[in-house]
Nucleic acid binder design. Structure first.
Length: 426
RNA sequence: GGUGGAAUAGCGAAGUGGCCAAACGCGAUUGACUGUAAAUCAAUUGGUCUCCGACCUUCGGUGGUUCGAAUCCACCUUCCACCA
């Protein structure tokens, strides 16, 4: 069995844990069961969820039993950690729908079918919902003092924020999460909870509660919160969150998100998010230092991630789409691949009749496609050599005829390096 | 309430009767270079056209003076400063 703690250490995935020495001994003694919770706030996971998910996978590969806990109950309350405002409550239907959607995604990362140590998915609503409020106060609330609860950073920061405050509902969140840990220890012999550092407070409530109620030791282990080198939150782009669901974030954009990683972030991301070996990553790091322009590390990261999440075929399509959208030739492109491109850029209709006869002036089409605000501007861009038709630089005298249509209906227009538009003849 | 001053393009800021579609700076766009980065250099930056030229619409708003107004006059609007 691999030494999972050493593995986490070198991947910079270890931030803190309760009683590390004792945990190391326990891990060395044999497989244990561990869990990590996810709040079903949306019907898809996003890249920010990947760190704990991959950590669970690493534990599974090391022979341990991973449990994914979907926060059917806690998700209805809202975790105050890292949130400056009170959350909106979700309806039970929403939560159930989200959990069902997330289940499918989890199967890509964790093995739920292996005979040895299959992963399992539990929903804390199953054991939380039946408990009455009075029972909860007596069985859980009695063991935790408000003094310790108020001392948690997540709570204190919200209490200092006079304008918004914190509701009793969110204040109670940590008790629910603590109760989960206790419950999982009792029913599934779960001995370790992992999460990002912002979960530290919630996790220690669980270890404390379990010790007091069952008289046994359980551990908590947290990973560093994934941030970009500039300190901003990971997993967001100008266009929004990067989701794992192909409907929400296309494989192409998913791939591009990782290709665009900063040099200063990419090695860290490779360590945390991929299963590449230490040697492979070191090689990529050397390559990055020697030849930053080649962006080998970024591309390796993007390849790994896209393959893992969307599969090899989606990766191939994303690569081809990238090639086209960064000026590559359209030779040999199939309609299927081109359709991927169409999905990525603004698409507008064009009356087919306009191309008949002498054809249409390219400047008109540039305006119609929304790439220039006026015909005068379109002409200037053409004069500057900044307009491309089907990825070939266009002369400003050029007339566009039906012969230029790709697959009989598309025109791919580009202004400059990256502004694309597709016109669909109708 | 009083007295001065200001309002110009995406932003900042020149321009005080014709040579003004309006200097300059920033920003933005395009090109070269590059790594889908940064920096640098160049071009463009109200609109239309038959585009080396012409026309149209713009300098807070409305009217006026003039052959001609961003520029002068009147009124209005908004903002700033100082004084109460």
């Amino acid at each position: 069995m691999t030494d999972i703690l050493a593995e986490l250490d070198w991947r910079d995935l270890y931030a803190d844990s309760t009683d590390r020495d004792a945990l190391a001994q326990r891990l060395a003694a044999g497989p244990l069961t561990l869990y990590c919770g996810f709040d079903p706030t949306a019907d898809s996971l996003h890249v920010g969820n990947l760190v704990p998910l991959f950590a669970l996978r690493r534990f599974q590969l090391a022979g341990h039993h991973p449990i994914v806990l979907a926060g059917g109950a806690t998700g209805m309350v809202g975790d105050p950690s890292g949130k400056s405002d009170e959350r909106n409550l979700q309806t039970p239907d929403q939560v159930a729908h989200n959990i069902a959607a997330i289940r499918g995604q989890l199967q890509k990362f964790l093995d739920f079918t292996t005979a040895q140590n299959p992963a399992c998915l539990v929903n804390n609503a199953d054991w939380t919902a039946p408990v009455s409020f009075l029972e909860f106060l007596r069985d859980v609330g009695k063991h935790i003092t408000v003094n310790t609860m108020v001392a948690k950073d997540s709570v204190r920061s919200r209490m200092e924020e006079r304008s918004s405050g914190i509701s009793f509902t969110e204040f109670s969140y940590m008790l629910l999460q603590g109760h989960d840990f206790y419950h999982l220890r009792k029913t599934l012999k779960c001995e370790l909870q992992v999460g990002a550092t912002d979960q530290w407070g919630n996790i220690t409530v669980g270890t404390e509660l379990t010790r007091k109620k069952l008289g046994v030791t359980v551990w908590g282990l947290v990973f560093p919160l994934l941030t970009k080198s500039d300190g901003s939150k990971y997993g967001k782009t100008a266009a929004g969150t990067v989701w794992l669901d192909a409907q929400r974030t296309s494989p192409y954009r998913f791939y591009q998100f990782f290709v665009n990683s900063d040099d200063s972030d990419v090695i860290k991301l490779l360590k945390i998010l991929t299963f590449l070996s230490r040697d492979e990553i070191t090689a990529l790091e050397t390559g990055l230092a020697a030849q930053p322009g080649a962006r080998g590390a970024q591309k390796a990261l993007a390849r790994e991630m896209t393959t893992l999440v969307h599969g090899p075929e989606a990766l191939a399509a994303a690569l081809k789409a990238s090639e086209i959208l960064f000026g590559g030739s359209l030779d040999g492109v199939t309609e299927e691949i081109f359709n991927d491109v169409v999905g990525e850029v603004p698409t507008l209709d064009l009356e087919r009749a306009k191309l008949d006869g002498a054809g249409s002036a390219i400047a008109d089409l540039v305006v119609q496609a929304g790439l220039a605000p006026s015909k005068g501007q379109a002409r200037k861009d053409l004069d500057a050599g900044g307009i491309y038709l089907n990825n070939v630089r266009a002369e400003h005298t050029r007339a566009v005829t039906p012969a230029d249509l790709l697959f009989g209906k598309y025109l791919l227009l580009r202004k400059g390096k990256r502004s694309y538009a597709v016109l669909v003849a109708r």
